[in-house]
Amino acid sequence: MLTGKQKRYLRKEAHHLNPIFQVGKSGINKNMLDQLDETLEKRELIKVSVLQNNFEDKNDLAEQIAKGTDAYIVQIIGNIIVLYRESLEDKQIDLP
C-alpha cells in the first residue's frame, strides 16, 4: 500500500506524462491488461485515459486495471487514471 507521501511524490512524477493507453467503449479485456502489465514493468508509472464513449464508472475501471496488473492507483483526476507498480527488473523510481 502506498503512503500519502509516496502518492504525492508519484503524482509529481506523473504530471508531465502523457496517457499511453485509452479505454474506449469496449472496456477492458485480457489483451489490454497484458499490454498494461508489460508497460508497467518497463515504466513503473503510467497514465490511462478513459474516453467519453465509455459509460462505465472510471473508479470501477481503475480498480479492474489495478487488480488485473497488481498495480496501485495513484490518482484519478478527470478522465485520467495514474497507476504505479514497482518493476522487478528495471527499477527507475525510488519512493520516499
Rank of each mutant, 00 (worst) to 15 (best):
Y72F: 15
P19N: 05
E13I: 02
R8Q: 15
M32R: 11
I93V: 13
I65R: 00
I80T: 15
Q22C: 15
E44F: 10
L33S: 01
V50E: 03
I77W: 14
K5L: 10
S49P: 01
I76P: 00
Q92I: 15
H16S: 07
L36V: 02
K58C: 06
A66C: 15
L61A: 10
M32K: 13
E86N: 02
A62I: 12
N54H: 06
V74Y: 03
T69C: 03
I81T: 11
S87K: 05
P96S: 03
G68P: 06
I77P: 14
N29M: 08
I93C: 04
M1R: 14
Q52A: 07
V74C: 07
V48G: 06
K7S: 05
D70R: 06
G4V: 13
G24L: 10
S49D: 07
N59I: 05
D90N: 08
A66M: 07
I73S: 08
K58T: 04
R8F: 04
Q6I: 02
A66K: 12
Q35L: 12
I80R: 09
H15V: 00
L95M: 03
R43M: 13
N29V: 04
E41Y: 09
Q64A: 04
K5Y: 12
D57L: 11
L61C: 05
G78Q: 12
D94K: 14
A14W: 01
N53F: 02
E38S: 04
N29T: 08
V48R: 04
L45W: 12
A14L: 04
Q6M: 06
L83N: 11
V23A: 03
A14D: 02
D70Q: 02
Q52V: 03
H16N: 12
D60M: 03
Q92E: 11
K7T: 05
E56A: 06
K91N: 10
H16Q: 03
V50D: 06
S26G: 14
Y72I: 13
I65D: 00
I65P: 00
N54G: 09
L10V: 04
K42L: 11
D60K: 14
V82P: 02
L95V: 00
Q22D: 11
T69F: 05
M1V: 05
L10D: 09
V23M: 05
T3V: 08
I73A: 05
L17W: 08
I28D: 06
I20S: 09
Q64S: 09
F21K: 08
Q22F: 12
L83P: 15
K67C: 15
Y84F: 10
T69M: 01
L17A: 11
Q75T: 07
L36A: 02
L88R: 09
L83Q: 14
K5T: 03
I28V: 09
Q92C: 05
I65G: 01
R11G: 08
G27A: 06
L2H: 06
G78F: 08
K7G: 07
A71F: 08
K67F: 15
E38R: 07
L33T: 02
D37A: 02
L61T: 06
L36M: 04
T69V: 01
K42P: 01
Y9A: 12
Q92V: 13
K67M: 15
K7E: 11
M1A: 12
N59K: 13
N59C: 11
N53Q: 01
E63Q: 15
K47S: 01
V82G: 00
N79G: 13
K7R: 09
L40G: 00
I20H: 12
A14R: 04
